[in-house]
Structures are given as C-alpha cells and as structure tokens.
Design a protein around this nucleic acid. Sequence first.
DNA 1: GAGTTGACATACGGGACGTATGTGAACATT
DNA 2: AATGTTCACATACGTCCCGTATGTCAACTC
Lengths: 196, 196
Amino acid sequence: MSGKSRAAMMEETRAKLISAGRKAFAEKGFADASMDDLTADAGLTRGALYHNFGDKKGLLAAVVAQVDGEMAAKARQAASGAEDTWAALEAEGAAYIELALDPEIQRIVLLDGPAVLGDPSAWPSQNACLAETRRALMALAEEGRLKPVDIEAAARLLNGAALNAALYVAASTDPKKILPRTVEAFKALARGFLAT
Amino acid sequence: MSGKSRAAMMEETRAKLISAGRKAFAEKGFADASMDDLTADAGLTRGALYHNFGDKKGLLAAVVAQVDGEMAAKARQAASGAEDTWAALEAEGAAYIELALDPEIQRIVLLDGPAVLGDPSAWPSQNACLAETRRALMALAEEGRLKPVDIEAAARLLNGAALNAALYVAASTDPKKILPRTVEAFKALARGFLAT
DNA sequence: GAGTTGACATACGGGACGTATGTGAACATT
DNA sequence: AATGTTCACATACGTCCCGTATGTCAACTC
C-alpha cells in the first residue's frame, strides 16, 4: 500500500490547489494573486491548475463553492437550535452577518466572487447560502406566517441585506459594538415579512 | 476666444477620460478594459490618464463617483413626489432597484466597484446613494415613526437589500415580470422598520 | 512487453500595467 | 520682449502574468 488510486491522487492535488488558492485570494485578492506563486505554494505548477480547473476563474469558482458550502452549513447549524421557524430565519440571518465579518469570506465571496463570476444566483455552487434562506422562507409560507410576497425575491432581499450589512460592520472602527445593533436592525427589518 | 483656460482644458480631458472609462468598464468590465484602448478612444494616451488619475483604480473611482452621484440624484427625484416621508423612503428603494437594472450600473457600481475599491461606505464619493437613504431614515426617526434601530445599520441593510435584489431581477429570465414583485417585497420588508 | 492514456511540467508568445523620460506650449519674470 | 520655468501630456521601456502549445513520465490495457 505505498500509493493511492489515480482518482484519489487527483482529488488530493485539487484539494491542495483549492487550499492554496483560498489563502492567496483571501490575502491578496483575486486580481493580485499570482498563479505561479500559489501553485508553487502547493508544491505544483500552473500546469496542474490549468489541467484541473481550466483557468484562474475556474479555481476561484471552486474556492467559492467550498467557502459558500461552509457558510451554509454554519448557518443551518445556527438555526438548528431555534424553537420556532421564525426564530430559525432570524438566527440564520444573524449567522450570515457574523460569518461575513471574516475577512476571507468578505474578500472571496462578497467582493471578488460577484465581480469575477457574476451574480451569485448564477453560480455553479448554486449559492448554498441563498438556498438555505429560501428553504426557511418556504417553511414559513407553509405555516401561513408570511405576507404574500415572492419567496425568491424575499430570499434575495434578506441575504443581500445581511451580507451587505456585514461589510459595514467589518469596515467600522468598532465592530464589536456595532454588530449587535446591526443584528437587531436586521431582525426588525425581517419582521416586515411577517403576516400581521 | 480661440482657446480655453488651462484649468478648463484639464477638466475637459478629465471628462473625456471619465466618459471613455465609463464606457469601457461597462462593456468589458474593469479587469478586461485596456487603458491603451480607452485612452485612445478619448483621443489621448495613457500619459494623460496617469497624470490625472494616478492609476487605473483612480479612474474607476472617478467613474464610480460620477455614476453614484447620478443614481442618488435620480433616487432623490423619485422620492420628491411622495406625499409622505415613509412613501419617500419606499420610492427611493424602488428607484434603486430599477436603477440597478442598468447593466452599466451593475457592472461598475455593484460588481467591480466594491471588488476594486473596497466597501462602498469607504468610498471617496462617500456613497451618495447611502447618504440619501440615511437622510430619509433620519427624517422618519425625527417624526417618531421608526422603531428604535441604529440608523446607520438600517441604511446599510435597506441599500444592500435593494441593490442586491436588483442583481437578481436583472439576472432573471423575465425581469419585467419579476421587477414589480421584487419592489413589493422590498416595501413589505422595509415596513419592518416602521414603529408599530 | 509494447502501445496508449492521462496528469502534470516546461517553454513560448502576447498583452497590459506602471514608470521614467521627453516635449512643446503657456505662464512668469525681468 | 526674451528667457527660464512649469506642467499637461506623449513616448519608450521594463516587468509581470496569463493562457496555450508542447513535452514527459508513470500507470493501465491488451
């Protein structure tokens, strides 16, 4: 058992490249990240990258999909403890705001991602975060607790509000103080969707 | 009166460069816009651009400031006809959503702008759109019609929701059909800030 | 055991950005 | 009014980086 299967080897190089790309994109931004550098960091060359991901944007897409998936998982976990469907939606939104305080997430998912890959709803990763919010809203709609709004639009509005607000919190001089206020404001805002 | 003053000449070249940059950035995106090409389009060379704007990002900042100012002006105009302070806020939000359907605005202000220049609240243009929303919210707060939320955070949430929703509308297969639903959803959402 | 496939490395060309240097017209100075 | 200076802009150069085309070596097939 000295080696591994062909497919396993390839998965390993893909993982190494994604990891190196994630670090480089987070630290330098997509535009200033050199593929020569990040592939060398992974102990490889650009050849491996082009073979596995097609081009620089392809690597970013893979990185975004990974980070996006992690975000959705954490949001789901945050919502899992809620007693109530509505509380779950609020918890998810709050979780997104807090998650987006991470510079890595801001740079990769909120700034470079949309600019390079286009609108998030068109991403190959199918935007797991958005799907999570949509799911929560549909559950509420079935319970009859929502105003008669378009679910898809509502999900986009909530997600956009949360993630954008996080950029504001992170850019502020005192994030720790502003975060709770922002989360409260988000909860107040979200209640606009509640049936009266 | 054959010529113009020195300062007037410089303003003219700045205007020509901004105009050419605006077109190039809108059509090709920031990354794929060639400074050789866009300066030639303006009948100039890269020398003029570096002299006036420092670098490529400097030109983008100037373009963003111009577009952002135009957006705020239109939003203010849309709100001017409202009978009521709250109706004005709703009208502004709706105006942002509709404005953001313009591909030029999407590309420059919503996608490349944040990615290249960083968080909008830190822009030199001071984000006229955001300022407009903040103004409307403060007026409402003085009238006592707002829940006790942080104004700054609320402005960011509303703006983020509106602009992000516009990306969704524009990316949809049938924007004309989805736009009114999205605007309605936005109005419902915004009511979350209204005092009960 | 020879041929083929495929994952990855190396070599090459083109393009774009930023800087350093040049230039000619307007303004100041005497 | 003539000369020196400034400055807005053009030109020339070096450098970096992406994408492709080509090469290579191990693994699998027959």
